[in-house]
Amino acid sequence: MPASGSPSRIQQYLEELAATVKNPVHRRLLKAHQGDNPIHEMETELGRILNEVVERSED
């Protein structure tokens, strides 16, 4: 079940966790963890990241 509750505490966990990862993609995904349905938000962000790769024209 998705996390709901104190946004500030969840935010604090996510920030602490983000500080332990170096991959910018992972940081973007952690940043997307918000709202009432954080799994959906992170999945959407993952889709966005992958789409950006597919649609990138300069290479």
Binding site: M1, P2, A3, G5, L29, I39, E43, L46, L50
Partner: peptide, 26 residues
């Protein structure tokens, strides 16, 4: 720590078999 546990659950859900969540064009 139930919120922490839920955050972990969410991340595991995202990272487990992510192929199923890839948008159709990708």
């Amino acid at each position: 720590f139930d919120e922490l546990e839920a955050v972990l659950g969410n991340i595991i859900s995202l990272c487990t078999k992510p192929e199923a969540r890839i948008p159709p064009p990708v």
